[in-house]
Every structure is written in structure tokens, then in C-alpha cells.
Design a protein around this nucleic acid. Structure first.
Lengths: 230, 230
DNA sequence: GAGTGGTCTAGACCACGGG
DNA sequence: CCGTGGTCTAGACCACTCG
């Protein structure tokens, strides 16, 4: 009989941390000992501590034992949905307009982050996303047709490159960067804002294995906020 | 006998998704069936599928079963270190300067997000973080002394509010938002940039249970990039 | 070498929620 | 109602790594 859940173990450990019974850097008792104390199976303690370690609250190492993370790293998880869903989630009608679609050799900086040959042409797509006909984001994208040849046959005016890629290249890794930049003349025109306005910028490069799929830079109009929970 | 690890189960499921054997929205076999197929215990399959669901690749519901996520949400994990460590991580020398420290009633917007009484005074701290004596970030912070009374006695010129709070109020939930804004005169002065320059803005409110600990707004100079992995 | 976490198994009961 | 995922147990073996 019992009812000791791993959540209750986690809650108790969190309480001890919050109450300073266990302080940052402290070595806490081993799983076996905690299991005995809580009157549950070791697997239950393991589950609780494992999740806490995953969340950055504990440091665990075989033989060395479990310690309270000396410097609890705050991890923010950002959900990055398909742009269309993000627009619809705000109650607006989503549409998009293709501004440019052409095969061309990318700037050296793009080829560098995508790790492609500097002189090879990639598919270049420029899109403006609209929320109820008002500009929502301006996207400049480079796609490696060598990695996803199917993209060449897609009518991007119907399914945006963003959406097609997410749905058709599901398991990828990548890097994201956020920053701020002044609106250039071109971007300002598409976003219907003033040149020089501060824009939120999201840059992302995704890979399928070691090969780049796409690099994308999104500019959002003044006032845009991206939120996350800690 | 065995050697079927939950990682191998996960890898196989990922392969089937990547190879389109299982497509977005598809219902996949139950744990029992997969365990039989892979020749392992149901708990092993459970572990694999649970982690994949946590990563946003699967949708799982009791009775309804497990489906390939129709819209794989990309989750980016951002590590938010103590500012001092972020500076040191870039190989610079970290220091900070307190610009303002006073008890005062916050603007209505701040009281609102912190859910404090609109007319109660909070601790207001304004800090400039320096990386090798060059401005790294400008921080405007409000702290609820009712939640963390110890802060009143801390010499913030030695330990920054950021650092003290992270080390002394570990277990909280919170909200973060990123955006872009024009540098105001005051911020431009502290960051040694031009008024109107586009700045990356990070706003964060953290809570201890239902009670707010602190609200902070950080402005980073032009060119700052915050990165994450998908 | 030996201690600690990591994982697997086989079986069981439970809780949510679709039909 | 009842199937499916969620979790717990007790025991076992393994793998990493500290001393």
C-alpha cells in the first residue's frame, strides 16, 4: 500500500530547498535513503529527482551523488508555432504574400551559417505574413534545395514555406537568435512602419542531420512581444 | 534477454515519423502493443513516448491513445543565467553600478503585472551592468519587500539584485517577454548609445507561489543577440 | 574498487475521458 | 463503461566516475 507519488517527493524536495534546509551546493541523501525516508520505491525518488535535474534545479552524477544546483539556471521554454497558427491564435485571419521567389547565390554570411558551398544557389523566398490584412511579419528565407528537393514543386502562395517545412521536415535541430534592429526601407515598406523603427528580429537555422534545411529571418513590427514561461 | 533501451524505442519511433510511416495526426499503436513488438516492458515504451510527448512530438491522452503531433511545436529552451555570469562567460570582467535605489510606489502597469496593491511602495532599483567597463545592460527593477524582506538589508553595490535574487529565491514561476524598443534618453545615456537606437528588451516577472517577487526590465545595447537551441 | 545514479522488468492498480 | 496512458513496486543489473 502506498500513495507516495513522485510529485509529492518532488514537492517535498522543493520545499526543503525553499526553506534552506538544503542549500545550493549541498549534497543531498542518495535515492536509496530518500526512498526509505519517504517510504516508497527508489524508482519513485528517481523519477522526482530526474525531473528536477532536467529542470536545472539539481546536479546529479553517478558516484558523486545529487547536489542542489549551486547556480540554478533559469530555463525559459518558448513555443514557436507556425506563423499562420500564431496569427489565428490571436483571433485574426491569416494570409501571406510572396514577394520574391528565386534561385540565387546567398550572401556569404548566410552560406556560412548554413554551411553550404559559398557559390551554390539556394532557393530564396521573401514572404509577408498578414493578420486580417495587416502586416504581421516579414520573412526572408533561404532554403537548400539539395536537402529538401520537394520544395521546388510547392506552390508557396498556397502553403507558406514556413508551414510546408514544419509539416514536412518534422525532426530537425536548429539554432535560434533574437535581437532588435532598425527597420530598413524595404522592411518598413512591407510592415507599414517607419524606417528606423525598432523591430524584433528572430533568426533561425535548422538542420536535418548535418545538412542545413533553411535559414530564416523574421522581422516583427514595433510593439510585438514574444512571451515565455520560466 | 534484453538490451532494449528507451532511447532505442524513441529512435525507432522518430525514424518512423521521419520516414512518413507514421504521419502527423496518425494514431500509433498502444504501449502494450509496441512493447510486444519491441520485445520490452511497457514501462520502457512509456518512458520513450512520454519524453517525446514532453518534447512536443506526440500528443498523448488516456483512452484516446497516442498520436503524431499534427503541428509539431518547436520548443526553444533559453538559459537565462545571472547577468554577471553571462558577462564572464564572454570573457569580460563583470561589474555593476547602482543608479537608483529607493522605496516608491510603482507605475500602475507594474503594480498590475506584479498583482500588488496599486498604492503600496516597492523597492525600486536601477542598475547598469558593465562588461570590462563597457555598458552591457540597463536594468530597471521592482522588488516586493513583503515577499523577500531580506533584500532590504543587502548591499546591492556588492551583490547585484539579479544575483542575490537568483541565489536566494530559487523556486518560482514566472513570465518572460522579449521585444524591441527605441532607446530613450535615459537608457541611451547609460548604454552609451544614441537615443532612438533599437534595443533588445527582456521583461520578466517572477513569483513565489501567488506572490510576486520582482519585475525587471533589461535593455541591451544595439547588436546584442540572445540565442537558443531548438 | 566501490558507491551512486540509470535503466529494465513484470505485475498491479488507478484515473481520465471517449463513446 | 472500459480502454489507454500514468504511476508505483520490488528486485536486478549496469555504467559511470570519484577516490
Amino acid at each position: 500500500m502506498t500513495a507516495t507519488t513522485w510529485q509529492s517527493v518532488r514537492a517535498e524536495v522543493e520545499r526543503r530547498i525553499a526553506d534552506r534546509e538544503w542549500q545550493p551546493g549541498d549534497l543531498i541523501p542518495g535515492e536509496e535513503m530518500l526512498a526509505a525516508e519517504f517510504g516508497c520505491a527508489r524508482a519513485t525518488v528517481n523519477r522526482a529527482l530526474r525531473e528536477m535535474a532536467q529542470a536545472g534545479l539539481l546536479d546529479r552524477r553517478r558516484k558523486a551523488g545529487t547536489r542542489i544546483a549551486p547556480n540554478p539556471v533559469r530555463k525559459a521554454i518558448i513555443d514557436i508555432p507556425i506563423v499562420r497558427r500564431e496569427i489565428e491564435g490571436r483571433g485574426a485571419r491569416a494570409s501571406h504574400r510572396i514577394v520574391v521567389r528565386a534561385a540565387m547565390v546567398p550572401p556569404a554570411a548566410i552560406a556560412s551559417v548554413m554551411r553550404t558551398e559559398p557559390d551554390r544557389a539556394l532557393l530564396h523566398v521573401e514572404t509577408v505574413y498578414l493578420a486580417s490584412d495587416r502586416p504581421f511579419a516579414h520573412e526572408v528565407r533561404w532554403i537548400d534545395p539539395k536537402t529538401v528537393p520537394e520544395i521546388e514543386a510547392v506552390d508557396l502562395t498556397i502553403t507558406s514555406a514556413n508551414e510546408w517545412l514544419v509539416l514536412n521536415a518534422p525532426l530537425t535541430t536548429g539554432e535560434i537568435a533574437f535581437s532588435a534592429a532598425k527597420a530598413g526601407a524595404d522592411t518598413a515598406y512591407h510592415l507599414e512602419c517607419a524606417p528606423g523603427d525598432p523591430l524584433f528580429v528572430l533568426e533561425r537555422t535548422t538542420f536535418l542531420g548535418a545538412r542545413a534545411i533553411t535559414n530564416v529571418r523574421l522581422h516583427y513590427p514595433p510593439g510585438y512581444r514574444m512571451t515565455a514561461t520560466v
